[in-house]
């Protein structure tokens, strides 16, 4: 009898108003949960994760890798996904990989554009992507000031996500943190 070794990877993306959870066996997407326009990411993400693993009858010890989108996007949204991902990676002692929302958008679009944007409540984060990587800085623009020729991605296709592992960055779970871009505007006393 052959022993079948499964290598499941979990993908978590809660960087804006959608929750996207993908389950991959080796590099093949085997199940996906995508909920649109969520108001309370914290309420639904863990129940959806449980649903995803339960309906595929996957035990947590079968998870071998975790991939998380670290934003930029909604501060609270990103924090939910990142906190869940780093806790799972730490507690299961499995490697964690990160991707930012702009490189994710470019990948899912097939790199057909040069300028990519991802949404935030009152504006858009924009970056130039070349050779699968961000060139220069991610900039924030208010909705009224969005430049032309920006491809704004609001619906990432993650089915082929794991076919190109070079787009991810392996990190220690301790150092995985949201990418906020927007600095806090606080007046110190």
């Amino acid at each position: 009898m052959w022993l079948v070794i499964t290598m499941y990877t979990l993908f978590i993306d809660t960087h804006f108003k959608d929750v996207c959870l993908g389950l991959y066996n080796k590099n093949r997407l085997i199940d996906l949960i995508q909920e649109k326009d969520i108001k309370t990411t914290s309420e639904i993400t863990m129940p959806l994760l449980k649903k995803l693993l339960d309906r595929n009858k996957i035990k947590l010890e079968n998870l071998k890798k975790i991939v998380v989108c670290i934003g930029p996007g909604s501060f609270t949204g990103v924090r939910v996904g990142v906190t869940i991902a780093k806790l799972i990676a730490y507690l299961l002692n499995i490697p964690i990989y990160t991707i930012n929302s702009l490189e994710l958008a470019a990948f899912s679009d097939g790199y057909n554009h040069e300028l990519y944007g991802t949404l935030e409540n009152n504006g858009v984060f924009i970056a130039q992507i070349k050779d699968k990587k961000i060139v220069g800085n991610i900039e924030y623009y208010k909705n009224s000031e969005i430049p032309k020729n920006v491809f704004i991605c609001s619906n990432d296709d993650v089915s082929q996500l794991l076919t190109d592992f070079d787009i991810f960055k392996e990190e220690s779970p301790f150092s995985v943190n949201p990418l906020y871009i927007k600095e806090l505007n606080i007046n110190s006393k």
Partner: peptide
């Protein structure tokens, strides 16, 4: 509160 709550949920579930 949110950060503690998400961490607790992960521990509870795992």
């Amino acid at each position: 509160l949110l950060i503690g709550i998400e961490a607790a949920k992960v521990i509870s579930y795992l």
